[in-house]
Design a protein around this nucleic acid. Structure first.
Length: 790
DNA sequence: TGTCCCAATCGGCTA
DNA sequence: GATTGGGACA
């Protein structure tokens, strides 16, 4: 091979990039140059491979838009470099997320399975709302049966490709039977609304391919070369989809790392990657084991953490990088001191000229942890960017504004309809009572609400004509239809609404997306109602304006194409998509969202039992392994410096400070990698603390780890910041015996009589789950709750 | 119908 | 500590 695209790759990488035909499994450890291999592989296929491959025949699937965009850009660059400016091959590639790929297929071929191409895409909120109406229309209370719990069952059924009927057959518990009924109704409602939820995007695409051989063959012929990134995160449905497409040519290249599988809760199935070799016995397996990212020390720490997991393939990461600084472990007093330590360190690194804020990421398990950090960043004037939290597209005003556009595209979308009626002035005069009347009326006639409204409109027009012609107002025709019994005022409000909607739909064909947006915001009165003069109102309007800016990007498209393209993109954006590596600011991000990113300096905070590992994962060994992988992902984001931080006390739900216990994962860190590590602390390691200056407080040598020895009571710890001093950490917490056990009857001063469902140790306390007569299930901390056995 | 206030619940990660 | 949903009231 002549000097070319694969130069500069190591032998394993080169092998991975140059193996084009047949099934390939690339096991890519963190920092092993995975993206580089993937992009060079595509470039190689297009420019050097024999036979040369047409970009049109390549499908590359990732999980985030960001990853897709990055691959596209990098591939383009390579192609320009090797094939010259003129080359347009990259534009012919199909490169996207699972969801965007499926949306494209369905917009093209939805008619084969009887779906409207203009389908709306329902996000989490929409889904929950629809589950609620499913419950209600079955005469079930959404308080008795949690819509979210139903939804999660429906979702997992969909992710394992179970139709409502099949799900009903395997339903075991009473609640599962309820969920099965809800699932069935939910699907009916989706259909009436001409909408698909996220899971359907995959599921319906599979249905399309399974039920239509010629469609399947068309896609198989087109996509002869398929690549899947982050294969460890695929769920069963995605697995089936990929395997159906690859079935004919078997040129399937999957890339992944089972140690970075952190989406089990989203039904990702780690077995997909673990079993690839048995799925394709002739598969070529290539391990990328050289790490180019991290120091030896950081890599050793990551290896030590992950070694305890059982669900993994053997591979050994190594690096030629220097050993680097030891890992800094720090115990803070509480979440505020934790934040202060982190921000103080970032400041110090900056002052010393070692790193800039943009080099730093602070990673945490839960979004709620970001608040204390944010406050401290603001207080100390260090720039930061927060990824996640309340997402832009989940803001109420943004969703409201979007609901207008969604309804214009698909007027059958009852969720958007209801949203506009209840939240915006366009629905003034129409309340919940009327909505029920209206939908019942529509139901009697078996018409969608939109059509029922149109009927109302034409009845009104008829009346008008007859009035003008001097005829009696009532006609025989109308008597055949059930009447809508509402006050004339309300009838007019409904007519105003449908007239407005029709005007919007007409406008769509006559203006650009941007003009349409402005038109809708003004005509609906939504702009005026938001900008009520309050600061908050302006802030909201500002967010709507930000959405307007997004519309602008679609202005080059013909009016009728722009809207669906816009809706599709909007429905599928993720938080990380916003991450800006060039901003001169530290990054605050969850461990999940940080996957795929890297930073010179990484802080992982909240390394406590109940947070990482998360309390909801403590009972299940598989979930614990996933928590461990999550930490592994976090550690391996770091290039040069790694800080692991935990707090001695933490307040949850804005409640009191609860003492915490350092994460069990810390115990797996080899002591020689950690700064200030003490296997068995002797004497007081905290000399002078609390009385000294800030410098000694936040210096690197005030590392007071006392984990590693849990049998010995930890020494008292003076208060930091303004918090009052607290007593010593309660003596060894290893084995508090449980006071309550399942089945026991108890009495609570407020909730009355109940029965213990379960009880477990949580922090230094016992948490009992109790079902109270008529009060439902409550979780109580035994030390606080004054529970008595009866 | 709309609005305000209180309580219950939440805060686990997300295409 | 913030959001949301229901009930009371205008």
């Amino acid at each position: 091979m002549a000097a070319g695209i694969l130069d500069g790759l190591n032998p394993a990488q080169r092998d991975a990039a140059a193996t084009i035909e047949g099934p390939v499994l690339i096991l890519a450890g963190p920092g092993s140059g995975k993206t580089r291999v993937l992009t060079q592989r595509i470039a190689y296929m297009l420019s050097e491979a024999q036979p040369r491959i047409d970009a049109y025949n390549i499908l590359s699937v990732t999980f985030t838009n960001k990853a897709a965009r990055e691959m596209k850009e990098r591939t383009e660059k390579l192609l320009v470099k090797y094939l010259g400016q003129e080359n347009s091959a990259a534009k012919r590639l199909t490169l996207g997320t699972f969801h965007s790929f499926c949306v494209r297929v369905l917009r093209q071929d939805a008619n084969y399975i009887g779906l409207d191409r203009n389908f709306a895409i329902y996000d989490d909120d929409d889904q929950t709302a629809l589950v609620k109406s499913s419950l209600n229309s079955l005469g079930l209370s959404d308080k008795q049966y949690s819509p979210r719990a139903c939804l999660s069952m429906i979702s997992s059924a969909k992710n394992t490709l179970q139709e409502p009927r099949q799900f009903r057959e395997v339903a075991q518990t009473y609640f599962e039977e309820i969920a099965a009924r809800v699932y069935e109704r939910y699907q009916e409602l989706l259909r009436t609304n001409r909408a698909l939820d996220f899971d359907d995007l995959i599921g319906q695409t599979i249905r399309l391919l399974r039920e239509n051989k010629e469609v399947l063959e068309r896609y198989q012929e087109r996509y002869r070369y398929i690549m899947v990134d982050e294969y460890q995160d695929t769920n069963h449905a995605q697995y089936q989809l990929i395997h159906a497409l690859a079935d004919k040519y078997q040129n399937l290249c999957v890339v992944g790392d089972e140690n970075q599988s952190i989406y089990g809760w989203r039904a990702a199935d780690i077995r997909n990657i673990l079993n690839f070799e048995s799925d394709y016995p002739q598969a070529k397996v290539i391990a990328l084991e050289q790490n180019y990212r991290s120091t030896q020390t950081i890599l050793d720490a990551a290896t030590a953490i992950i070694a305890a997991n059982t669900q993994r393939k053997d591979k050994a990461l190594w690096t030629e990088n220097e050993s680097g600084r030891p890992i800094q472990v720090f115990e803070a007093y509480n979440e505020m001191e934790e934040a202060n330590y982190v921000v103080g360190e970032i400041d110090r690194l900056q002052v010393r000229g070692e790193f800039k804020p943009k080099d730093v990421a602070v990673l945490y398990r839960t979004n709620a942890q970001s608040r204390a950090l944010e406050e401290m960043f603001i207080r100390r004037g260090i720039p930061y960017q927060l990824i996640g939290g309340t997402r832009f597209y989940e803001r109420k005003e943004v969703k409201d504004a979007l609901a207008f556009l969604r309804l214009i595209q698909n007027p059958y979308d009852s969720i958007s309809f209801t949203r506009i009626i209840t939240n915006t002035p366009a629905g003034k005069g129409i309340g919940p009572r009327t909505l029920i009347d209206l939908s019942q009326w529509a139901n009697q006639m078996s018409l969608p609400i939109y059509v029922a409204l149109q009927l109302l409109q034409s009845q009104e027009a008829d009346k008008q004509t007859r009035r003008n012609a001097g005829e009696p107002e009532e006609s025989n025709e109308e008597d055949l239809l059930p009447p809508l019994n509402v006050a004339p005022k309300i009838r007019n409000a409904l007519l105003d609404f449908v007239n407005l909607l029709e005007a919007f739909i007409r406008a769509r064909g006559e203006m650009t997306l941007l003009e349409l947006f402005d038109y809708v915001m003004e005509k609906s009165g939504y702009e005026l109602s938001l900008r009520d003069g309050s600061e908050e109102g302006e802030e909201r309007w500002h967010n709507v304006q930000e959405l307007r800016t997004v519309c602008q990007e679609y202005n080059h498209m013909p009016g009728n194409d722009a809207l669906p393209a816009f809706m599709e993109d909007v429905a599928l954006v993720a938080d990380v998509d916003k991450f800006n590596p060039d901003a001169d600011a530290a990054t605050l991000i969850t461990l999940h969202a940080a996957k795929g990113l890297e930073f010179p300096v990484v802080f992982i905070v909240g390394l406590e039992e109940g947070i990482l590992p998360h309390s909801r994962s403590l009972e299940n060994e598989n979930q614990l392994e996933e928590e461990r992988r999550l930490l592994y992902v976090g550690i391996t984001r770091a290039k040069n410096r790694l800080y692991l931080v935990y707090a001695f006390r933490r307040s949850l739900y804005g409640g009191q400070n609860i003492p915490t216990k350092p994460s069990r994962f810390l115990l797996d860190l080899p002591s020689q990698l950690v700064k200030g590590y003490q296997q068995a602390p002797t004497g007081s390691p905290h000399g002078g603390r609390g009385t000294g200056s800030r410098d000694t407080l936040w210096g690197t040598d005030v590392n007071r780890t006392n984990w590693g020895n849990t049998t010995k009571p930890a020494p008292a710890k003076p208060a930091a910041l303004s918090k009052p001093a607290t007593p010593t950490r309660p003596a060894a917490t290893g084995n508090i015996s449980l006071k309550f056990k399942a089945g026991e009857k108890v009495l609570h001063p407020k909730f009355g009589k109940g029965m213990v469902v379960s009880s477990r140790i949580s922090g230094n306390d016992e948490e009992a789950t109790v079902a109270f007569e008529g009060q439902g299930i409550k979780k109580l901390m035994v030390s606080l709750a004054n529970l008595q056995k009866i």
